[in-house]
């Protein structure tokens, strides 16, 4: 289970930017959550915090009840490598490495023997339908194929949580549908999915939808809200609140 408690993220630069403010969010195992919102709203900022790529400047982020701020770099790295799969907004594939090598990047430090890692990487490529592209270099692939390689790399280690930043942003309708079908499949198998999208059709595939605007989070649709699976402090109608913001107030 993932919990954000009054999470804020402020970027200091020429001027101070409050990219996220007072975000409360609970994501249960097996959830499928879509995050929408205008450009620059703070969606990626939130996903990067969830993916342990960035740290909140205020509030707490609990992973399985553990305050991630208390984890050492080594443990955060371990969680990134095994529990979390991340699909980046741009694909972030290494152009000089083959498709297979790119997928293997995620396995290198999981402690598996090489044979096993190769098997799993091939499995992951098979699941995204790219077995025949294993020895290709990413620049020779189409946009949709590259995105599927990135997805194969993210899910190859069978992480419990898949975080995807605009996974269909660069894809045509056919490719988008293929990716979304994959996500449905993963989610049906028990994987927790959080995906950012600006496409209402993509968001509609998720069971829960939240919207980020100017750094603040609002719940749009919450199929399971009545079961107490999610909470937003701005929605007092939900009674079974598992999380109460007990520190920090939204700026």
């Amino acid at each position: 289970m993932i919990e954000l408690e009054s999470v804020g993220r402020r970027f200091e630069g020429a001027g101070s930017v409050a990219a996220l403010q007072g975000v409360d969010l609970v994501i249960r195992d097996g959830d499928y959550l879509a995050v929408t919102g205008p450009s620059g709203a703070g969606k990626s900022t939130m996903l990067n915090i969830l993916g342990l790529l960035d740290r909140p400047s205020e509030g707490r982020y609990l992973f399985d009840g553990i305050d991630t701020d208390r984890l050492g770099e080594r443990e955060r790295t371990g969680l990134r490598g095994t529990a979390i799969g991340f699909v980046f907004q741009s694909f972030h594939l290494l152009a000089e490495r083959t498709v297979l090598d790119n997928v293997l990047l995620a396995f290198l430090y999981g402690g598996l023997p090489r044979r096993e890692r190769l098997d799993r990487a091939h499995d992951a490529l098979a699941r995204v339908g790219l077995s025949k592209r294993a020895s290709f270099l990413p620049p020779t692939l189409s946009g949709g194929e590259r995105q599927r390689v990135a997805i194969a790399r993210a899910v190859g280690t069978a992480p419990r949580v898949l975080l995807a930043d605009e996974p269909t942003g660069n894809l045509d309708e056919g490719n988008s549908r293929a990716v979304l079908d994959l996500f449905d499949e993963f989610n049906a198998a028990g994987q927790t999915i959080v995906t950012i999208t600006h496409d209402p059709a993509v968001a509609a595939r998720a069971r829960r939808r939240v919207r980020v605007r100017e750094g603040r989070l609002t719940v749009v649709a919450d199929a399971q809200a009545s079961k107490g699976l999610a909470l937003h402090p701005g929605l007092p109608v939900i009674p079974a609140a598992p999380v109460v913001a007990d520190e920090g107030t939204p700026a």
Binding site: R74, T77, G78, T82, F86, H92, L94, L105, L108, Y109
Partner: peptide, 13 residues
Amino acid sequence: AEIGLRRALGTPR
């Protein structure tokens, strides 16, 4: 960038 990617994918320092 490549090092950052490896770190993001779980490679320890």
